[in-house]
Design a protein around this nucleic acid. Structure first.
Length: 422
RNA sequence: GGAGAGGUGGCAGAGUGGUCGAAUGCGCGUGCUUGGAAAGCACGUGUAGCCGCAAGGUUACCGGGGGUUCGAAUCCCUCCCUCUCCGCCA
């Protein structure tokens, strides 16, 4: 959510942001609603002040006296009026609130213009895609793949997109998780193991609700299976005021992630490219507003380092305005090269939300200089999503003999130098 | 899951229909005192919305939501959470 003051004082900034993100929002309608809401609020408050003043008079007067009874009659009318106006106010306020939630975050000045994913800038590349295995195949075509990743049985037991990982497949997945967590902790993040179901208030604070409920699995208890650890992690400090000295707070968490991905089909969803349940380590930071862009660079570097240590070629995209996402100010995507499919797979998305999430979740810190609470800036990024990294490893490192070479950094975790499909 | 008790400001804790945003204590801040400190004394000390250039004004908030009433921290309903006892259980 944006600062309502920004909307009132500089609507042109918000208008420009909407244009840069290529969204369709009727800003004038929001501004009109804001004016109406404030006028109604003033009316109701004036009536309440009147009621309060009368209340004090009545407290001082004798209970059954004529003037007391007259006051009761008089205030009955005021009470009716308040009720009527309040109903209107509440109705308007709900509309105002919904309208405010529909306004996107402002892109940072360093975000390139553009409408489509093709207009994202390649910010950096690392490693050579030519250096990958000449024997590379799409991972689902590798002989014995179904021995490690069993989609048909997952479909039988649960549904499409819920594969079983077996043997070296399960072990490689677990090795990656452990490697990611260890590296993230070394980089200064505190490991957290959060709940993997969240309530509606939490899903609302991070923006999954309203409007995106169709993307989450919901239980009969009205709890939602987390689509990413970002949700429980961010909500940890919801409605809290932190010490300024405590910033930045850096945390990482592994959770399985659950996404309904309704309507997805085609080559994008073959094999491990897109599944309904996958493992991911998420990085999250709560930082002082003055340093959030430095922290974003560090966060991106922390995620990049994981791919470097795994010796996987990757590129970093700086997202253009149109592909930025509703609540981000700036976002980098990390894409790993999958040599068999000959395409880039997104394995991390590192974003600065500035105070957009923090306002919605009411996460603040007490500024020492003023003693007043201010909103923190929140950042997050994957570090990293497992199945696509696993897919890239299988494809890029496939040997002539059908085995997969394990990168040196991962060998201590995996326990051997080669993965076998038998 | 069953029975009972309870949720008030940073903490403790009073308040059972009106002058209560809320006593008191602790904590915290500023000042006085002191060679310095402690103690003591004085004053101050929540969050947010709206109006205002500002000074300031005004409203809301006593777990959440709803209701009764001229008026609710206080009465009623409902949901959530905590604690105690019982049951069940990795």
């Amino acid at each position: 959510m944006l600062d309502p003051k920004l909307l009132r004082e500089s609507p042109e900034i918000v208008r420009a942001a909407i244009a840069r993100k290529h969204l369709d929002v009727d800003l004038d309608a929001v501004l009109a609603l804001d004016t109406t809401w404030r006028a109604l609020l003033a009316e109701v408050e004036a009536l309440r002040a009147k009621q309060k003043a009368a209340n004090n008079e009545m407290a001082a007067a004798k209970k059954g006296s004529p003037e007391f009874l007259a006051k009761v009659q008089e205030m009955k009318a005021v009470s009716q009026e308040i009720k009527a106006k309040e109903e209107n106010l509440n109705f308007t306020q709900e509309k105002w609130n919904a309208a405010m939630l529909a306004l996107p975050n402002i892109p940072h000045s360093s975000v390139p213009d553009g409408r489509t994913p093709e207009e994202n800038q390649v910010f950096a590349t690392n490693g050579s895609i030519e250096a990958t295995s000449p024997h590379a195949l799409p991972h689902w075509e590798i002989a014995g793949f179904s021995n490690l990743v069993d989609f048909p049985r997952g479909a039988k037991v649960t549904g499409a997109g819920f594969p079983f990982l077996i043997g070296d497949g399960a072990k490689l997945s677990r090795s990656l998780l452990q490697f990611f967590l260890d590296e993230d902790v070394k980089a200064g993040y505190t490991e957290v193991s959060p709940p993997i179901f969240v309530n509606a208030a939490s899903a609302t604070a991070t923006g999954q609700l309203p409007d995106k409920e169709g993307q989450m699995y919901e239980t009969v208890d009205k709890l939602y299976a987390v689509p990413t650890a970002e949700v429980p992690l961010t909500n940890f400090f919801r409605d809290e005021i932190l010490d300024e000295d405590a910033l930045p707070v850096c945390r990482c968490a592994y959770t399985p992630c659950f996404r309904r991905e309704a309507g997805s089909y085609g080559k994008d969803v073959r094999g491990l490219n897109r599944v309904h349940q996958f493992d991911k380590v998420e990085l999250l930071k709560w930082v002082h507003p003055s340093s959030s862009y430095d922290e974003l660079d560090k966060l991106r570097n922390d995620a990049e380092r994981l791919l470097q240590k795994l010796e996987l070629p990757y590129r970093v995209l700086l997202m253009c305005g149109g592909d930025l996402g509703f609540s981000q100010s700036k976002k980098y995507d990390l894409e790993v090269w999958a040599a068999g499919q000959k395409r880039w797979l997104e394995v991390s998305s590192c974003s600065n939300f500035e105070s957009f999430q923090a306002r919605r979740a009411q996460i603040r810190f007490r500024a020492k200089a003023t003693g007043k609470p201010e909103l923190v800036h929140t950042l997050n990024g994957s570090g990293l999503a497992v199945p696509r990294v696993l897919a890239a490893l299988l494809e890029n490192n496939l040997q002539a003999d059908g085995r997969v070479k394990i990168p040196a950094a991962l060998v201590p975790y995996f326990g051997k130098d080669y993965l076998s499909f038998k």
